[in-house]
Amino acid sequence: MGEEGWRWADAWIFVSLVIAGGAGRHRRAATTRRPEGVRLADVLSTADHLNRSLPARHEVEAAVRRLAGAGLITVSDGWFRVTPAGEHLWRTRPNGGFGTTVEAVHGVLSRRHTPGTSDWTLGDDEHAAAVQEFAVRTGQPVRRRPAQESSSG
Score class of each variant (00 low, 15 high):
residue 109 L to T: 02
residue 130 A to M: 05
residue 134 F to W: 08
residue 10 D to Q: 05
residue 12 W to V: 07
residue 35 P to T: 12
residue 144 R to N: 12
residue 86 G to Q: 00
residue 126 E to T: 11
residue 67 L to P: 04
residue 109 L to M: 04
residue 64 V to H: 02
residue 125 D to L: 09
residue 98 F to S: 13
residue 69 G to I: 00
residue 25 R to L: 13
residue 41 A to V: 13
residue 79 W to S: 10
residue 52 R to C: 09
residue 72 L to Y: 01
residue 89 L to A: 07
residue 106 H to T: 03
residue 142 V to N: 09
residue 70 A to S: 06
residue 31 T to I: 09
residue 88 H to I: 07
residue 90 W to D: 04
residue 20 A to T: 12
residue 102 V to P: 00
residue 112 R to C: 06
residue 100 T to F: 15
residue 46 T to H: 07
residue 111 R to G: 11
residue 100 T to V: 15
residue 12 W to L: 07
residue 18 V to G: 01
residue 15 V to F: 00
residue 16 S to V: 08
residue 94 P to F: 11
residue 14 F to W: 02
residue 89 L to D: 03
residue 150 S to K: 10
residue 24 G to V: 05
residue 73 I to C: 07
residue 72 L to H: 03
residue 65 R to F: 03
residue 127 H to N: 07
residue 82 V to Y: 03
residue 35 P to S: 11
residue 127 H to R: 07
residue 138 T to Y: 03
residue 5 G to T: 07
residue 152 S to W: 15
residue 134 F to K: 04
residue 134 F to H: 12
residue 1 M to P: 04
residue 107 G to Q: 05
residue 76 S to F: 06
residue 125 D to R: 08
residue 67 L to W: 01
residue 82 V to A: 06
residue 26 H to E: 15
residue 87 E to A: 11
residue 26 H to A: 13
residue 94 P to C: 09
residue 77 D to R: 13
residue 58 H to F: 07
residue 49 H to L: 15
residue 87 E to V: 06
residue 32 T to D: 14
residue 98 F to K: 12
residue 100 T to M: 14
residue 150 S to R: 15
residue 94 P to M: 09
residue 74 T to M: 07
residue 68 A to N: 04
residue 17 L to F: 00
residue 145 R to K: 14
residue 52 R to Y: 12
residue 64 V to Y: 04
residue 57 R to T: 10
residue 140 Q to M: 14
residue 145 R to H: 10
residue 108 V to C: 09
residue 112 R to M: 06
residue 73 I to W: 00
residue 127 H to P: 01
residue 20 A to W: 05
residue 94 P to T: 14
residue 20 A to Y: 04
residue 46 T to W: 05
residue 85 A to I: 00
residue 125 D to G: 06
residue 43 V to H: 01
residue 135 A to R: 11
residue 66 R to N: 06
residue 23 A to I: 10
residue 5 G to W: 02
residue 69 G to E: 00
residue 79 W to E: 13
residue 64 V to I: 11
residue 54 L to I: 15
residue 53 S to F: 05
residue 142 V to E: 01
residue 15 V to N: 02
residue 40 L to I: 10
residue 145 R to P: 08
residue 118 S to M: 02
residue 45 S to H: 08
residue 67 L to D: 05
residue 4 E to R: 12
residue 106 H to P: 00
residue 29 A to K: 05
residue 82 V to I: 10
residue 42 D to N: 11
residue 134 F to V: 10
residue 126 E to P: 01
residue 81 R to Y: 02
residue 62 A to I: 03
residue 1 M to T: 08
residue 131 V to W: 01
residue 43 V to Y: 02
residue 134 F to I: 13
residue 140 Q to A: 15
residue 115 P to Q: 01
residue 52 R to E: 15
residue 25 R to T: 14
residue 8 W to S: 09
residue 148 Q to N: 12
residue 46 T to K: 09
residue 130 A to T: 08
residue 73 I to H: 04
residue 107 G to N: 04
